[in-house]
Design a protein around this nucleic acid. Structure first.
Length: 497
RNA sequence: GGCCCGUUGGUGAAGCGGUUAACACACCAGCCUUUCACGCUGGCAUGCAGGGGUUCGAAUCCCCUACGGGUCACCA
């Protein structure tokens, strides 16, 4: 007997950009399919037409693509189970809804939302679980006609059986039991025939032969309803895995307007986070590698495909630790090719007006050196703009610590000597700069901190920074000489009291 | 309020009845470096939400409590 091929899916509703939570669920689903040589399906759950956003579908898919998660079947490439958009599957849902109605497993409900809301409030006030009253469950044909004569258009409710226990075999939580008495008759189709999520998702997962439904924990309580539908329709239920939520740094559930954390994948993309860093970071939020690998934290997508497993999923919610994400991204920035980082940095530098959009080869190689100089301290590429600010300004802004250094008595002498050396130099490569500083040392007798700190402070306005000779070389002869001369002339004024 | 899920250091976490309670981020100290960063070395939970059990032995099994979360939509 051959095992059924593993099929997983990511089924977002097209209401916005790819969220970090959705990205993680998609990643888990993707990894599980890939690990088992199965298929990963991206399906669009767009039955809530009022909420649908114009290009959200494309945004979701762009986000997945950027992360490097490719799919085998979806709206764009089709597949054997097409269509992959709920609203294109209306005929299918109608068929199953009719079937349930005919079999007496579903019935029309004429209650208005006002009536329903009133019921709910009353039940809440009485401290009872809010649940559908069952008012329309036993309507006679005459009563139905009368209600329809009033112009009331029915929605369709699923008849939830009472007195039973539904067991969810959850891949991450184990067996979870639900008493069906806690489940009221729920709506499976709106008056215009559009199915609700619980119904559409069930029919789609069943028909598409999804074997593993991996999704957020908030769906766990919905699962018994879906299992009831699977049973009523005579489908085998897939395996479920409910992944714990991602919490913000305060340990709270993220809300849409939560600003303590960037929530959308494209925001990270725009800031210059690398997809492999996001993947690596996200997968560790709720999943842990096994055995020896538990001591590592850097995993490529290929390695994850190898190592991923459902039984290593965590039941506890995970806090999104921005600091660790930055560390991880910095790690990947250092690992990746310089060329790639330059390409990512360029748009930021251009937007900041630092470099021209149509830059010469010469300028490009200058930017490459600049990025190279700062690469290892980038948590995300956009930081390059602020980090290199002093390369692009006329006047130097001297930090207090730099002024302190520049007040040392040897400073004028060192600076004069350095200017003299610069004027005589043939070129201004880092090696040359090194030689020039050596010469200054010989000429003045100052060395080490007494030499380098004043030079750094005078030229950059800071007492910290990356490699000095490269910095000076990149700044260029004119700029360096200019800054030194300016400082020499206006020393009193610049250094103040 | 009912039902359901969870709780190991500041954070992600390993741990599956007997361990000095891994590893990583962060933090602290030292080394390296003209400086910063990188890198390296070392430190960092006497305790696993609290309380009861079970057991020779519990972070690991059971129960209760507390706290956090999810859900109870014609949203997904």
């Amino acid at each position: 007997m051959s095992k059924k091929p593993i099929r997983t899916r990511y089924a977002p509703s097209p209401t916005g950009h790819l969220h970090i939570g959705g990205a993680r669920t998609a990643l888990f689903s993707y990894l599980w399919a890939r690990k088992n040589g199965g298929s990963f399906v991206v399906r669009i759950e767009d039955t809530d037409v009022e909420r649908n956003v114009e290009d959200a579908e494309a945004k979701q898919m762009d986000g997945l693509k950027w992360l490097g998660l490719d799919w085998d079947e979806s709206v764009d490439i089709g597949g054997p189970y097409a269509p992959y958009r709920s609203m294109d599957r209306m005929d299918i849902y109608r068929e199953y809804i009719d079937r349930l109605s005919e079999e007496g497993l579903a019935y029309p409900c004429y209650c208005t939302s006002e009536e329903l809301e009133a019921d709910r409030e009353r039940q809440l006030a009485e401290g009872v679980a809010p649940r559908y009253s069952g008012r329309c469950r036993h309507l006679t044909a005459e009563e139905r006609e009368a209600l329809e004569a009033q112009g009331r258009n029915p929605s369709i409710r699923f008849k939830a059986p009472g007195g039973r226990t539904v067991t969810v075999q959850d891949e991450v939580r184990g067996e979870v039991h639900f008493d069906t008495d806690g489940i009221g008759d729920f709506i499976i189709a709106r008056p215009d025939g559009r199915p609700t999520y619980n119904f559409a998702v069930t029919v789609d997962d069943a028909l598409m032969e999804i074997t593993h439904v991996l999704r957020a924990e908030e769906h766990l309580s919905n699962t018994p309803r879906q299992i009831l539908i699977y049973e009523a329709l005579g489908f085998d239920a897939p395996k479920f895995g409910h992944v714990s939520l991602i919490l913000n740094p305060d340990g709270k559930k993220m809300s849409k307007r939560d600003e303590s954390i960037l929530q959308f994948i494209d925001q990270y993309k725009d800031l210059g986070y690398l997809p492999e860093a996001l993947i690596n970071f996200l997968v560790l939020l709720g999943w842990a590698p096994e055995g020896e690998e538990a001591e590592r934290e850097i995993f490529s997508r290929e390695e994850l495909v190898q190592s991923f497993s459902l039984h290593r999923m965590s039941k506890a919610p995970a806090v999104f630790d921005t600091v660790k994400l930055r560390w991880m991204n910095n790690h990947y920035i250092k690992e990746s090719s310089l060329e790639r980082i330059v390409d990512l940095a360029l748009p930021h530098l251009i937007r900041a007006g630092r470099v021209s959009p149509d830059l010469s080869d010469e300028a490009k190689s200058w930017v490459t050196r600049l990025v190279s100089l700062y690469r290892e301290q980038l948590d995300y590429v956009a930081q390059i703009v602020d980090l290199t600010e002093m390369f692009f300004r006329e006047d130097v802004r001297y930090a207090e610590a730099a002024k302190e250094v520049l007040r040392q008595e040897q400073v004028p002498q060192v600076m004069k000597a350095f200017i003299g050396q610069i004027e005589q130099a043939d070129d201004f490569s880092p090696d040359t700069v090194k030689t020039l500083l050596k010469a200054v040392q010989k000429e003045t007798g100052y060395k080490g901190k007494q030499l380098f700190m004043p030079v750094r402070a005078a030229v950059t306005g800071e007492v910290h920074g990356p490699d000095l000779k490269e910095t000076i070389s990149l700044l260029g002869r004119d700029t360096v000489a200019g800054r030194l001369n300016h400082l020499l002339k206006n020393r009193e004024q610049i250094l103040g009291g």
